[in-house]
Amino acid sequence: MSKSKDFDGGNVLGPWIVTPDEIPDVYNLKMVARLNGEPMGRGGSNTSGMYHRWDAILAYASEGETLYPGEVIGSGTVGGGTLVETGRFLADGDLIELEIEHLGVLRNRVVAATA
């Protein structure tokens, strides 16, 4: 287990949030990663396959820092959703979507860096 994607300005939340009473079972949510509308990580992607459960994630995170009520902790990437497994690379204009049942869709477009 390691902390990743945790950099200044790299964590965006919103515009909505879901409360625990809206999710029947956090360990049984369908997930899918899409590139330009094409599902990339659907092969059985479900939170039931989480490598580390939330109690272990929180215990690990709290070893090196103080956690406060209301903090948001992420858990990783949808299986098969990183493109590394497919040999594909992102290009200017690509649309990336990460969706988790009951939570919604995180959608971002790739923009080429300018000199």
Rank of each mutant, 00 (worst) to 15 (best):
2 S>F: 14
2 S>Q: 13
3 K>F: 14
5 K>N: 12
6 D>W: 15
6 D>T: 15
7 F>G: 06
9 G>R: 12
10 G>F: 14
10 G>N: 09
11 N>R: 01
13 L>A: 11
16 W>T: 12
16 W>I: 13
17 I>Q: 10
18 V>N: 04
19 T>E: 01
20 P>C: 01
20 P>Q: 02
20 P>D: 03
22 E>M: 11
22 E>S: 09
23 I>N: 05
23 I>F: 13
24 P>D: 13
25 D>M: 07
25 D>T: 08
26 V>W: 14
27 Y>C: 08
29 L>G: 10
29 L>M: 13
29 L>P: 12
30 K>M: 04
31 M>S: 04
31 M>A: 09
31 M>V: 06
31 M>I: 10
32 V>Y: 08
36 N>A: 04
38 E>H: 00
40 M>L: 15
41 G>R: 01
41 G>S: 02
42 R>G: 15
43 G>L: 08
45 S>P: 01
51 Y>H: 09
53 R>A: 05
53 R>L: 07
54 W>M: 14
55 D>R: 05
56 A>S: 10
56 A>F: 07
56 A>C: 02
57 I>T: 10
58 L>M: 06
62 S>K: 14
62 S>R: 14
63 E>M: 11
64 G>C: 03
65 E>D: 03
65 E>S: 11
65 E>K: 12
66 T>D: 00
67 L>G: 03
67 L>M: 05
68 Y>N: 09
70 G>K: 02
70 G>Y: 05
70 G>A: 02
71 E>T: 03
72 V>H: 06
73 I>K: 00
76 G>C: 07
76 G>F: 07
76 G>I: 13
77 T>L: 03
79 G>A: 05
82 T>V: 13
82 T>G: 08
82 T>E: 08
83 L>C: 01
84 V>F: 06
84 V>E: 06
86 T>A: 01
87 G>Y: 02
88 R>H: 05
89 F>Y: 05
89 F>N: 04
92 D>E: 08
93 G>A: 04
99 E>S: 11
99 E>N: 04
100 I>P: 05
101 E>V: 13
101 E>Q: 13
103 L>C: 08
103 L>R: 06
103 L>S: 05
105 V>R: 00
105 V>D: 00
106 L>I: 11
107 R>A: 11
108 N>G: 09
108 N>Y: 12
108 N>R: 12
108 N>S: 11
109 R>G: 01
110 V>K: 06
110 V>A: 08
110 V>E: 03
110 V>I: 15
112 A>N: 03
112 A>C: 02
112 A>E: 08
113 A>I: 14
114 T>A: 04
